[in-house]
């Protein structure tokens, strides 16, 4: 990226149409439409903005609604509102408190989901930390996958080093209080789950493969294949298990 001195800001307040290009800070307060690819240092969206093209930003913060018709790249992204990406997304460090929808695949370094993530393709990251809901249409591939189940979570396939899935409500007063507002504690559905160290609760999967596999409460697993160790909770269903 060139020095910011050569870049100008783009501020959208009211209803504005703008063209793409290289900008310093892009701020949207009203309702905007941008035609063409945009490359900017920061992108802040408090209103509603639609990009017809791709969006590249060093840092993005979306409290309103943003739609990107192409691909999006960002080193840092905070989604407090809604962000829809129709292409692929490469977002290195992401915090989702609102909803992020990606029609293609999503790749990044650290994904933290406290809201909702929908990716139609694959999703890959070094760390995938979820305490919200997610749907991944393809493979969810991450070094560390740490899921606290609060809502419905789904992935066609899951693979990684460490895969831990636990129900969100812990114990004590806070958990009782929360369970008054949420009808079910959430669950995970996946086709296959493969990793080195796997701990699962309230998960439905056809096959689970790993070195150390522990199946906690509320699971329904078709087949477990393990290399070193396998443990199973009493109130859980594992149709078949074998050491390989």
């Amino acid at each position: 990226m060139e020095p910011s001195d050569f870049r100008s800001d783009l501020t959208i307040s009211g209803t504005v149409s703008a063209t793409g290009g290289v900008y310093n800070d892009v701020k949207v307060r009203g309702e905007g439409r941008v035609d063409g690819d945009v490359d900017c240092r920061t992108f802040t969206c408090m209103g509603r903005c639609e990009f017809f093209g791709s969006l590249t930003a060093a840092a993005a913060r979306i409290t309103g609604d943003a739609i990107v018709s192409g691909n999006m790249r960002a080193a840092k992204a905070k989604v407090l509102g809604n962000l829809d990406i129709h292409g692929n997304a490469d977002l290195q460090e992401v915090l989702i408190r609102g909803a992020l929808t990606v029609d293609g695949s999503l790749s990044g370094d650290e994904l933290e989901i406290k809201g909702m993530l929908k990716a139609k393709g694959d999703c890959q990251a070094e760390a995938f930390l979820a305490s919200g809901g997610f749907t991944v249409g393809g493979l969810l591939n991450a070094g560390t996958i740490d899921v606290r189940l609060y809502g419905e979570c789904k992935a066609q396939e899951i693979g990684g080093d460490l895969i831990h899935v636990r129900r969100g409500f812990g114990s004590g007063f806070g958990a009782m209080f929360k369970s008054l507002f949420f009808s079910s504690g959430g669950s995970l559905t996946a086709g296959t789950i493969e990793g080195d160290d796997i701990y699962l609760e309230y998960t439905k999967a056809s096959v689970v493969r790993g070195n150390n596999v522990t199946i906690g409460p509320g699971c329904d697993i078709g087949l477990v294949e393990y290399k070193e160790a396998f443990q199973q909770d009493k109130g859980t269903r594992v149709t078949d298990s074998r050491k390989v």
């Binding site: 890959q124 591939n141 070094g143 693979g159 990684g160 460490l162 493969e194 990793g195 080195d196 070195n211």
Partner: peptide
């Protein structure tokens, strides 16, 4: 089995 690598390694190398 043949190479002795784990699922974690395979997925990491894919990433």
């Amino acid at each position: 089995e043949l190479t002795g690598i784990s699922y974690g390694q395979l997925y990491r190398w894919k990433r």
